[in-house]
C-alpha cells in the first residue's frame, strides 16, 4: 500500500504529511507531527483522551482516519493557549486542582472548550453530560466540573466587558 499525502491545517498552521491508508488521525498527530498532547487511552473512542476538533466539531481522533483530515481545520490541545496566555479553562484547571495525573486533561480541555463555544452558560448537568465521553480516573470529576463552570462564568464576564 502506498502512503497518502494529506494537506491540512493544524492549530492554524498549514501542514502536510504522508500517512498509511488505515492510519488514525491520532497516530498521525502523535507519531508523524510530534503533537503528543493528544493521548491514546483506549483506541476505541471510549475514553476521550484523544479529543480534537475537526472543522469545529469535537471528535475522537482515534476514530478518524488521518486521510480524512484533507483540507480540514484541526485543533488540538497544543493550539489552545495563545502564546504565553493560557485559555481560561487551562488556567482554571490549574487553580481548581482539576487534574491529578493529567493524562485525561488535554482531551477534557478540548471537549470543554467545544462545550463553551456551543453553550457559554451550561448548567452543571449539561457540563456533566457533555463531558461524559471523557474518562478521568483520578478526580471523581468534582473539581473538573467546578473548573469548567468557573471558566464559563469568567468567559461570560469577559465577553460582557468586550461588548
Amino acid at each position: 500500500m502506498s502512503q497518502i499525502h494529506v494537506s491540512t491545517t493544524i492549530n492554524g498552521d498549514a501542514t502536510e504529511f504522508l500517512c498509511e491508508p488505515d492510519e488514525t488521525l491520532l497516530d498521525a498527530l502523535r507519531d508523524r507531527l510530534g503533537l503528543t498532547g493528544s493521548k491514546e487511552g483506549c483506541g476505541t473512542g471510549d475514553c476521550g483522551a484523544c479529543s480534537v476538533t475537526v472543522n469545529g466539531r469535537l471528535v475522537c481522533s482515534c476514530l478518524m482516519l488521518a486521510a480524512e483530515a484533507e483540507d480540514a481545520e484541526v485543533t488540538t490541545i497544543e493550539g489552545m493557549a495563545e502564546g504565553e496566555a493560557l485559555h481560561p479553562l487551562q488556567r482554571k484547571f490549574i487553580e481548581h486542582a482539576a487534574l491529578q495525573c493529567g493524562i485525561c486533561t488535554p482531551g477534557i480541555l478540548v471537549a470543554a472548550k467545544a462545550l463553551l463555544e456551543q453553550n457559554p452558560a451550561p448548567t452543571e448537568t449539561e457540563a456533566r453530560y457533555w463531558l461524559a465521553g471523557n474518562l478521568c480516573r483520578c478526580t471523581g470529576y468534582d473539581k473538573i466540573i467546578r473548573a469548567v463552570m468557573d471558566a464559563a462564568a469568567e468567559m461570560r464576564g469577559e465577553m460582557r466587558r468586550a461588548s
Binding site: K39, T76, I77, E78, L99, P106
Partner: peptide, 21 residues
C-alpha cells in the same frame, strides 16, 4: 495553602511527556 502545582502548565498544554510520548 493552595498554590498552583508547578507542573500545571505542562499538563494543561499537552507538553508533559507521558510513557508513550
Amino acid at each position: 495553602t493552595r498554590p498552583n502545582r508547578p507542573d500545571g502548565i505542562d499538563k494543561v498544554t499537552g507538553r508533559a511527556r507521558f510513557g508513550a510520548d
